[in-house]
Structures are given as C-alpha cells and as structure tokens.
C-alpha cells in the first residue's frame, strides 16, 4: 500500500490545487503539504467556501480537519461515480486516452470501408453509374473517417 494519496483542494473562487499527501492508513490521517495549507488559509481569509477531497481506489473521501496540517479521512462519506455516470462522461467528456481510442475506432471503420470497397469492386458483375457512385461513397467514407481518426489521435 502506498503511503501517498492524491488530494484535491477546490474553492468557490475557482482555485483548484491537486497533489499528493502523506497518509497514515492505520489511523486514516492525511498530512497535507504546505502548499495546500497556503491555499486553505487564503480561502479562509477571503471568506471562500472550500472542500478537500482525497482520491483512493476509485473512491473520493472528504477530509475533516484534525489539527495543524493533519486531516482525517471520512470513510463513511466516501463516494464513487456510478457506471452510468462514467459511461456518460466517457462519451460527452472523454479524457486524452479515450479520445485516442475513439481515433482508433474511426481508423478501424475507415479500414472497413476500404475493405468494403475492394469486396464490392470484386463482386460487381459489370460497371455502371450506380456501381461507380457506390464505390465513390465507400472511398469517401474511408477518407473522411481516416481524417477524423487522425484528428482524434492527436494526443494532446
């Protein structure tokens, strides 16, 4: 088990600080580094509301102040995003890796269109305007999906 845990500080001012903090897992005590304390003091002095959350094993734990820079994990209030919430966010707000996977999906569809084109070309009995139009559609689909896949695979 790691002795470090990811912690996020968020304030109503819009300030957000993320980083690692030391955790004593036996007692459930997190010791925040100094830069968190600075943000907390600044929010307190400005009268802003704020929350400090620890992230562990997919769960979010609210941190409750104990003394100085020591905070307790509130295990009873831990929460985790449900499957449907995660699925919705994967579709509407994909992360970098997810966007790259979507790019690969577009390239797979592009390859399928090219294979479809070749299959159509070999199986058509004779050339006609209709056949040429459908071959053109296959090619256009492949080209468009290739470009879309390239944009999604940009990686930043």
């Amino acid at each position: 088990m790691s002795t470090l845990i990811k912690v996020t500080f968020s304030a109503t001012s819009g300030e957000e600080v993320s980083g690692k903090a030391q955790i004593d897992r036996a007692q459930g005590i997190v010791t925040l580094p100094a830069r968190f304390s600075i943000s907390i003091d600044r929010a307190r002095n400005a009268g802003e509301r704020f929350e400090i959350v620890a992230h562990d094993n997919g769960y979010k734990y609210p941190l409750v102040h104990q003394d100085a820079d020591r905070y307790a994990l509130e295990a009873a209030s831990r929460r985790r995003d449900g499957f449907w919430h995660q699925a919705w966010r994967a579709i509407t707000e994909p992360h970098k890796d997810q966007r790259q996977q979507y790019g690969r999906f577009a390239h797979t569809l592009s390859a399928a269109a090219m294979i479809g084109l070749a299959g159509y070309l070999k199986s058509m009995p004779a050339w006609s305007l209709h056949a040429a139009w459908e071959l053109f559609c296959f090619f256009l689909c492949g080209a468009v999906l290739f470009v879309v896949g390239a944009v999604l695979s940009k990686g930043d």
Binding site: K96, Q98, Y102, E134, C137, C141, V151, L152
Partner: peptide
C-alpha cells in the same frame, strides 16, 4: 440509396466523434 446511407452514417459518426473530442479537450485541458 446504399451509398447515401453510408455517407449519412459516416457524417453522423464523424460529427459525433469530433464533438466529443472538442468537448473533452475543453473540459480536461490535458
């Protein structure tokens, strides 16, 4: 008809993927 359906489907998939990509970049800034 098949060709038009193929183009419409491709357009819909492309538009959706590009929209999701732009949304993801805007939200996560990663």
């Amino acid at each position: 008809m098949f060709g038009v359906a193929l183009l419409v489907l491709t357009g819909a998939i492309s538009a959706f993927l590009l929209w999701a990509d732009r949304n993801g970049r805007r939200v996560h800034k990663d």
